Amino acid sequence: MNYQDKLERLIDVKDGLIFTKEVEEAGIPRQYLNILVKENKLERVAHGVYLTPDTFDDEMYILQAKNQRAIFSHETALYLHDLIDRDPIEWSVTVPYGYNATHLRNEGVKVCTVKKPLYQMGVTELRTIYGRPIKAYNKERTICDIIRNRNNMDIAILNESIKRYLGSKDKNIPLLLRYAKELGVQNYLRKYMEILL
């Protein structure tokens, strides 16, 4: 099998979305990406990111692939966990302090920063609507994050998502309370729980 056939098979396995680093890891010279671009079998959508023309543009997956330190959070995580009904107007991500996220803000992404020790707390793997893996915060971390950010949030979204979380079968209250303590929002969380329970 020649390199081009090997690359086309790899693209099929990856559902039409391929990264330069994956091509290199497979031992295929990167110039074969350019050959497929010239043949209109691939389109370069960002630095090191290629899509087949018939593949849906999976924005969330591409955003995170280009910015591996970005973790979906806040309203976007609420949406991914089905804790709100409306699609987010803009994607929300969290990055560690010190990460230069100017390019993300320029793309219309809402960026939150957090101290490095708290950055990985509650990270889980979810799936985009196209079935590709992405990193987001779990429900408990997300609830704590929106309470921390309550002054910049729509109060209806805040109340609805907390109410939905508390009514869900897979809630983990001990974990929620532990995260609330670490993130310094336990008193606010207790107030919301008293009101909404």
Rank of each mutant, 00 (worst) to 15 (best):
R164L: 11
M1G: 10
P174R: 12
A65W: 03
V114N: 01
G98L: 12
A136L: 04
R190G: 01
V45H: 04
M60C: 01
E90A: 13
D58H: 08
R127V: 07
N2C: 10
Y119W: 15
I62N: 03
Q31H: 15
Y179S: 03
R132N: 12
S168W: 08
L166K: 08
Y99F: 15
L196D: 02
E8A: 05
W91E: 08
D12V: 05
K21A: 13
E125F: 05
P117I: 13
T142S: 12
M121C: 07
K6N: 12
L104A: 13
N159G: 03
M60A: 12
Y79H: 11
V95H: 08
Q68N: 13
E107Y: 05
D54N: 13
N67M: 11
L126P: 04
T55D: 06
R105F: 02
L51C: 11
D5P: 00
Y61K: 03
D87I: 10
P174A: 11
I155G: 02
L126W: 01
I11G: 02
L177W: 11
T128H: 06
R86I: 05
V114H: 02
T124D: 01
L36H: 00
R150V: 04
T142K: 02
M121D: 12
L176N: 07
I89C: 03
K191F: 07
P174F: 09
F56K: 14
I71Y: 04
I11A: 08
H103C: 01
R148Y: 12
I28Q: 01
E39N: 09
I147D: 00
I28L: 13
D15C: 09
N40A: 14
G16V: 07
E160P: 00
G48Q: 06
D57F: 15
E43D: 13
C112A: 14
E25G: 04
E107W: 09
K135Y: 09
H81V: 03
I173T: 07
K66Q: 15
V45E: 06
V13P: 02
M153G: 02
D154Q: 08
R44W: 04
R148C: 15
A70M: 06
L63A: 08
Q120E: 15
R178P: 00
L118G: 08
I162T: 07
D57L: 13
G184L: 11
V123L: 07
N2P: 09
E75F: 12
H74N: 13
S92D: 12
E182L: 15
